[in-house]
Amino acid sequence: MTTTFARSLDEALTALAESAAAGAKPVVVSGGTLCVPAMVRGELDAADVVDLGRTGLNTLAVGSVIELGALVSYQQVISSPRVRAELPLLHRMASGITGGIQIRNQGTLVGALCAARPQSDALAVLVALQAEAVVVSASGTRTAPVADLLVSPGTTHLAADELVAGLRIPACLHGTGYVKLKFAESSWPVVTAAAVQDRVVLGGVAGTPQVVPLPSRREVRAAVVDHLDALPTEHRWADLRAPWAYRRRVAPEIAARAVELAEEAR
């Protein structure tokens, strides 16, 4: 195993390119909260590791679009008054991350995105906010809507030599709401709902976040039920915490609560 503690984005990209050219599947480490323990347990068999810790990609810039680097932690998001004002949805989501002060200091939004786990807070929120990922490799940069990057549980549309350098999120000042259902402080989120304007995005019901358009704010539950019932069986999500039937039963309520919060925030 080789580990590169890249000192710049370029160094990281070079290391990635070399590893990918050799046919390996390099592991990129942002916060490390998911992939480091997986490597230690041997679940993630990494020939090459590229750790971004020293790349300085931890900047958070707030303009009409909020730009945040791969290393920006939940705590940075929570502490930023500008994010709080201009992306209250992101602020609220980050404030509810479990694992204590430590995980909020260590976990990153980009890491959560690249992990592509249905049982995560960030995904539905990023999709709801129409965030874009800045995808870079030694041969160039592209931007991709987050929703397009997410393929299936644990899988993203990233080539072996690509990494996500940061996110661009348009400001979204008003009328958003976020609700997550989890079973105990230790548990992963089970069902999440991020409400924005005319849609609610659900996490934890399918392999990837589900965008449910809301023709009217009164019809939230019905819209969610219709959407879920139309989900092909193979996309329905269940894990140890709860079977699909449970998620199907609670999701309309979680969505309705998120929409209610959004109404209040108008």
Partner: peptide, 11 residues
């Protein structure tokens, strides 16, 4: 304040 089991030493 961090959990050091999540940090690769070289970092």
């Amino acid at each position: 304040c961090v959990k050091t089991c999540l940090v690769l030493a070289g970092r």
